[in-house]
Design a protein around this nucleic acid. Structure first.
Length: 449
RNA sequence: GUGGUUGUAGCUCAGUUGGUUAGAGCACCAGAUUGUGGUUCUGGGGGUCGUGGGUUCAAAUCCCAUCAGCCACCCCA
């Protein structure tokens, strides 16, 4: 049969894994540096945990798992006959693949509340699945790297998470812009324009600002039937930007606005915006579509990459409420590993990796040399030196070709002469130099590589 | 979910207005070369032309459907 992959998924070859691990290691080490603890949750969750958490569209993008056994016997016959998929769903599927890491985290937190520290800082780096149509930098299976703090509403963590973004992208060598906004600031803005009735609409319209500028926003709001002069007023504020004193004055005319401005001041005094290697700025046009954010929101993008955001996050007041665990405030960020990978690959930001770690390949020249080579390998491995041997005394052409395939920097030939005096003839694959070495000498040579 | 675009060997692609047995480069295998490869030369294996249907004496080529990839939109990482 013809081999193929499901839509939107891919294999990772050895070299890709090395590059991906390079990214994951930097992110993981940074999370650890700030005291975050690792957790993992299952690929599948109960559908009831997942459904209704990501909006109607999210429900459609959830992968559902068909029940095992004779699932049709237990299916809702009426719904099947009517062809009503949504109605039949509950009777044929009770599990789904995780859609993000935040909801599983909230579930985990609620279930383990008594075992966890009062402030729980966790990170999680696992694949998630969405039945989205694939395109550039978008897959149906992709990794997210999340760090969240649950159980504290201190803005210290906002400051810390911005710092983590800054540090990780600096380590990766990607120049980014970290945009920050506050949901309450947006709320205040919507109020001044009389658009607070449907705040979700307001924020999704604002999300288009990035792509289409003011145009998309104006069009969307116009379609909602808002007053043209009010729309223009809001656009005017957005265009002037947060740093404009007049804008801040205007935003402070409402209670929510004052709250937001106070929090921004606090975040500033906590050093949230200072000493950063990347640009960190308050951007009034940053909305973040997901509606559960209630405080600060973040988004990271690489200017001129055409890539979309490399990560995002924010504060949500009631992270675990849906799981009957009330009053837990959370704030978190997420790194989009796939996009970071693609960007770094395109820009050539990765250091060079070798797929195989072996420092040396032993090549037996006759049948007796096979054991001899094996022993040399064992000795090197005792010293934690990665090495391997060609398994049979094949033609040298063949053995050399293999050495090239695994990009071994050294090869060691062993035949009658070598076995007699217990040495190997080592050839440096790059320079072509060839010399005899005993074990000790070989170890020193390898350590000098 | 909507629109555009592509699909020929493991990879990158050529294939004329429809016309013999569908080609090239790279890769792979063997030999020239029995303790020194990467160059060169010779030979070799490998293709239901994405899949299914239709038009035709004849389809990789034209038509329809379908699947998959890519790109844009919606949304998102």
């Amino acid at each position: 049969m013809k081999p193929s992959l499901p839509k939107g998924t891919r294999d990772f070859g050895p070299l890709q894994i090395r590059k991906r691990n390079y990214i994951f290691d930097i992110i993981r080490n940074t999370f650890e540096l700030y005291g975050y603890q690792p957790i993992e949750t299952p690929a599948m969750e109960n559908l009831s945990t997942l459904m209704g958490k990501y909006g109607e569209e999210g429900d459609q993008l959830l992968f559902k798992i068909l029940n095992n056994g004779d699932f049709l016997a237990k299916a809702d016959k009426q719904a099947l006959e009517e062809g009503d998929s949504a109605k039949a769903l509950g009777s044929i599927s009770r599990r789904g693949l995780r859609y993000d890491l935040t909801v599983p985290f909230a579930r985990f937190l609620s279930m383990n509340r008594n075992e966890l520290p009062s402030i729980f800082k966790r990170y999680q780096m696992q694949p998630v699945w969405r039945a989205d149509r694939p395109q550039k930098g978008r897959f149906q299976e992709f990794y997210q790297c999340d760090a969240d703090v649950a159980g504290s509403d201190s803005l210290v963590f906002e400051s810390e998470l911005i710092e983590i973004y800054d540090k990780v992208f600096t380590s990766l060598g990607i120049k980014v812009r970290i945009r920050v906004n506050h949901r309450k600031l947006l709320m205040a803005l919507a109020e001044t324009g009389g658009m607070d009735k449907n705040f979700i609409h307001f924020s999704t319209a604002l999300d288009k600002w990035d792509k289409t500028g003011s145009e998309g926003f104006i069009r969307e709001m116009d379609q909602q039937g808002y007053d043209k002069s009010k729309i223009n007023q809001v656009v005017n504020i957005l265009e002037q930007g947060f740093e404009e004193p007049a804008v801040q004055k205007l935003l402070s005319s409402s209670e929510t606005g004052v709250q937001a401005l106070r929090e921004i001041d606090t975040l500033k005094s906590l050093g949230g915006f200072e000493n950063r290697k990347n640009e960190v700025k308050i951007d009034l046009t940053l909305a973040r579509g997901l509606s559960y954010y209630t405080g600060f929101v973040f988004e990271v993008e690489a200017p001129n990459s055409g890539m979309g955001s490399l990560g995002g996050g924010g504060r949500y007041d009631d992270l675990t409420g849906i799981f009957d665990y009330k009053g837990i405030s959370g704030v978190g960020i997420s790194f989009g590993a796939e996009r970071i990978y693609e960007l770094m690959d395109e820009e050539g930001f990765f250091p060079s990796f070798r797929a195989v770690q072996s420092k040396i390949l032993f090549m037996p020249l006759d049948e007796n040399a096979v054991n001899f080579c094996q022993n040399w390998c064992r000795n090197l491995r005792k010293l934690n030196i990665p090495c391997e041997m060609y398994p049979e005394p094949a033609k040298l052409k063949k053995q050399f070709r293999y050495a090239e395939q695994i990009k071994a920097p050294l090869v060691a030939l062993a035949g009658e002469l070598e076995m007699l005096e217990n040495f190997v003839t080592v050839k440096n694959q790059e320079t072509g130099e060839q010399e005899k070495f005993d074990l000790e000498g070989l170890v020193t040579l390898i350590n000098q590589l």
